[in-house]
Design a protein around this nucleic acid. Structure first.
Lengths: 82, 82
DNA sequence: CATAATTATTCACTTATATGAACTATATAT
DNA sequence: ATATATAGTTCATATAAGTGAATAATTATG
């Protein structure tokens, strides 16, 4: 039941946070304890992160999951399709 | 890279919302367009929902994903392990 | 500009989630 | 108590995500 658009929004959120924090794929993968291959595929919109992956990324970025999921693109999309 | 505790927190969030909205497994499954078998396994902590599944549940409950992920148990857990 | 070092991508394999149908359990009616 | 309807669970199969290692691309350095 994949949703192309939701996937892009969430994966872009990760890229955006990486850019904001000046983190490379390798650095974030290492710091969050996930594989760099997997993270590479996420930022290239090939695979979508599970909630575990998102949690690990949040821990590396020092934000809560609540904060991770609180951004305009996602809110707008949810409202748009509701 | 499953995380038993995160899984429970998120699955419980769904059960809690179901209780608050007086929705049965069958009703929420139907309204959100996901399989009732899958939802059953989620509320029984056997499987964890993907972000697509969560989005569909949010749409049925008329909340945003931001709202879905904004609850104390999750925030406390994130802070606890960070 | 060649080559070493670093960073990013791909892919086979493993592990996990989603579905739908069969099955079980519970509630209601007669 | 039994039949019927309603609600919940299980499981085989399909599809998707995570890993690690090989490969490719990019960037530094002599």
């Amino acid at each position: 039941m994949r949703n192309e658009k939701l996937g892009k929004i969430i994966c872009k959120r990760i890229s955006d946070l990486m850019r904001q924090n000046n983190l490379s794929v390798e650095q974030l993968a290492y710091q969050s304890g996930i594989s760099k291959g997997g993270l590479s595929e996420i930022v290239r919109y090939k695979k979508d992160p599970s909630n575990y992956t998102i949690l690990n990324i949040c821990l590396a970025l020092n934000i809560t999951m609540t904060e991770f999921f609180d951004f305009d693109e996602l809110n707008n999309y949810t409202k748009e399709i509701s």
